[in-house]
């Protein structure tokens, strides 16, 4: 029997269930354009670089600690400047002061349960809270052993401390649900992001991270190079804001 004369029960149900969806989509989103595409002079959403001056989240003590950590995670050497000079601490500060710090794009209500290791941190603390608690606990720990803050330790002592955090041999007194290792991994992750994210966000100053690994940045046309196999790309990186 041809479709349309007497619809089968299955077809009727399928089409009936589609109707409300279609009606909603039609009313909410549809917009028809005829003739040429709409266009406006000066249209555009220029990127907004972070304010490079001052600190928006960290306290002065926290700044000293974080700068010391990022400078050990990415130490200055013959290949590049260190994490501090590259602006990794500035990057992390701006991220914590923004949406990331407050987990404002994540579901942050209960119930809270221990997830699998692959699911990452599952507790109640936002990244702001994890940094605040982790940095406090780190300096508490350092002061009991050395009568100094982390930033005042000699570099090899700092390295030993960080290695302890990473391996889990060193157990900081952290808020419930936050492990020492998870805190370390959060800082390491954000430090790398600060070293390689666009300079717009406060880190990767002078595109040092990109120059180090030979990443060309926000270029997007390689037609003149695509067939030159095994030849290094000759153009230096360019940032979103046009720095080159």
């Amino acid at each position: 029997m041809p479709w349309g004369v007497q619809p089968s029960r299955r077809r009727f149900l399928a089409s009936a269930s589609a109707l409300p969806i279609l009606a909603f989509a039609g009313g909410a989103m549809a917009r028809s354009i005829s003739g040429t595409l709409p266009w406006q002079a000066f249209a555009g959403e220029p990127p907004k670089p972070v304010n490079p001056l001052g600190w928006f989240f960290f306290t002065p003590d926290e700044v000293a600690t974080v700068e010391a950590i990022v400078d050990r995670l990415i130490p200055a050497d013959s290949l590049s400047v260190g994490g501090k000079a590259a602006g990794c601490a500035v990057f992390i500060d701006r991220q914590l002061a923004g949406a990331f710090g407050k987990s404002s794009k994540l579901y942050m209500k209960g119930p809270f349960a221990n997830g699998l290791p692959t699911q990452g941190y599952q507790g109640t603390l936002t990244p702001e809270g994890r940094y605040r608690d982790g940095l406090r606990a780190l300096n508490d720990h350092v002061r009991t052993g050395h009568a100094k803050s982390f930033a005042q330790l000699a570099p090899h002592d700092q390295d030993a401390m960080l290695a302890g955090l990473e391996s889990g041999q060193l157990d900081l007194k952290l808020a419930q649900g936050l492990s020492t290792r998870a805190f370390f991994e959060l800082v390491l992750q954000n430090t790398m992001e600060g070293f390689f994210a666009d300079p717009l966000y406060g880190g990767n100053k002078g595109m040092v991270g990109w120059k180090l690994v030979g990443f060309p940045g926000a270029r997007y046309d390689y037609r003149d190079h695509i067939e030159k196999h095994n030849v290094p790309y000759p153009k230096g990186p360019i940032s979103i804001y046009g720095e080159s």
């Binding site: 003739g35 040429t36 595409l37 266009w39 002079a41 000066f42 249209a43 555009g44």
Partner: peptide, 9 residues
């Protein structure tokens, strides 16, 4: 360069 432009359609 300043304002952008659109080609004739």
């Amino acid at each position: 360069v300043l304002a952008g432009a659109q080609a004739a359609g």
